[in-house]
Write a protein that binds this DNA or RNA. Sequence first.
RNA 1: GUGCCCGUAGCUCAAUCGGAUAGAGCACCAGCCUUCUAAGCUGGGGGUUACAGGUUCGAUUCCUGUCGGGCACGCCA
Length: 586
Amino acid sequence: MTSTDFPNFKTHFIELLQQASNAITSLEATVVDIELTRTKQASHGDYSCNLAMQLAKPLHKSPREIAQLLINALPPSPYLEKVEVAGAGFINLFIKNSAKQQFLHYILHSKNTFGNSTLGQGKRIQVEFVSANPTGPLHVGHGRGAAIGASLSNILTAAGFDVSREFYVNDAGRQMDILTLSTWLRYLELNHIHIPFPQNAYQGEYVKIMAQQIFQAHAQRYVHQPELLLDSLPEAVLATEMNPDEQLDKLIANTKEILGQDYAYIHNFVLTEQLGDCRNDLMEFGVEFDTWFSEQSLFDNGLVAHAIELLAKKQHLYQQDGATWFRSTNFGDEKDRVVQRENGQFTYFASDIAYHLNKFGRGFDQVINIWGADHHGYIPRVKGALQALDLDAEKLQIALVQFAVLYRNGKKAPMSTRSGEFVTLRELRQEVGKDAARFFYVMRKSDQHLDFDMDLAKSQSNENPVYYVQYAHARVCSVLVQWNDNVDNLQDVNTDALSSPAELALLQKLIDFPDTLEMAAKEFSPHLIAFYLRELASEFHSYYNSTRFLVPEIPLQHARLALIASIRQTLSNGLLLLDVSAPDKM
RNA sequence: GUGCCCGUAGCUCAAUCGGAUAGAGCACCAGCCUUCUAAGCUGGGGGUUACAGGUUCGAUUCCUGUCGGGCACGCCA
């Protein structure tokens, strides 16, 4: 056994069981997948299989009897110590200690590629995430999508996928117009022209700052004729029966009229400003994208019109009340959806259809959208549109991320975008640090609500799981520094001395890492990595307190150092997947 | 009202798509630094998995109903 061709025990044993299964039964279709799970108790061995129970019914024999037949038919393996029947008919497999011990050589040779697999077989997979409206700073709600998307992308890359990270920029919609209007109104204020600022416009300080920038660079250049702004609106804009949204739309229309060509300048200025800010913010959060895809480009290139034409050609559209509807009920949606409004404008849904059509045209084998859980009702219509276009909707998978609720001083922190009352992602990073923020965001299953306790994230104590994992890494580093030799010299040392229950459990834990990573990739579940790291750190801390490493007996010393060096490597690899730093000292 | 998600220790959450005695952390109690980092470790109490049925060798997991919570139900994005 050389370090480079070390098998994945789990898949190896599954193959053996498959062969045994084939030997005792000809019923091929009875069991599709053989499942092997880690045991909870050491007395049950290392892996357990329930195949015999599943075969009991089709074979009309008792599970224990079948289990024994399977064991008898099991091909020999150099890694197996013993196999036994237990309980109702479980087949428990025990790995040889020597195989576990030699696994360390594999880890120490693999270094930062330990854990990687070829699961993805180089398939191209796109992960689209964050995709926040560029109308203001990212807040803590966006942070979770960012952390999960980035970590998942890392995990998929490690699992052998060719990952492309994409941010869909909603630069074409009404929200951008509202931001443009908001900025212009603030700009007018700087020119001593005061027009009541609508409640539902963007209130945040950053709007005033952008207005300031325009004012400093161009003085009165963009004032034009603001007295026309309130045309056709009731004199007191704020005190009126008119629907606030209609009001806003009217103001936007008037602004476009008044500014003419210059509207585009302000629109473009605020977009560039916000997008740049967003990009920086995310970069400092350890999140980067391969592609920033513009919604506006879909209109500019005629792709939206094209997508709608395609749907029309395939008879999936109809006219009603002056609007154009997509018959999404044919594809399981609860009602049909408008794609083109009475006023001729395409809806957001229309550009989204074009966007997904474009995505599919780019040749990805799989497309993942990470969406906020509030978008769950949106899924059927998008998948429906793909089906209507004769595309394989199965290729698109939506991962819903539940909201994160922020707790500060034991109280819920308010979060409202439009009013400007929210904790920004930047503030969160400054307060708790990037590492803690990234780790906390992925600590929970993504489809579960997350209570983000800022006080806990900030605490530099045993309460904080981030420090707990990082501390384990730093402790190993400290020992290895005092050992004062090249860690590479441990790569092939004899590891037979690692035979205590704690050591064997740690070895098995390390063996689990590649499986955990594969599982995280298959299930789109970065939280599995966070949990794994905590468990590994926990076992290490316990081991650290009970065992001395720098003992005088050199073979024992080297074996133990090889173990903790492997633990360090695994912690480091795992933390890297989450973009959390692995410090040498703390 | 309709649809989707959820309900597990006092709190925050796990449980490897139905497996063996449901596990961690926090909080609480009692211990461990002359020795490689005490941001650590060891031990202890804590549960009818919201409730009631059903499916089967076996259910926190699947089905039905009830109660409770979240989200979504625009010619917004």
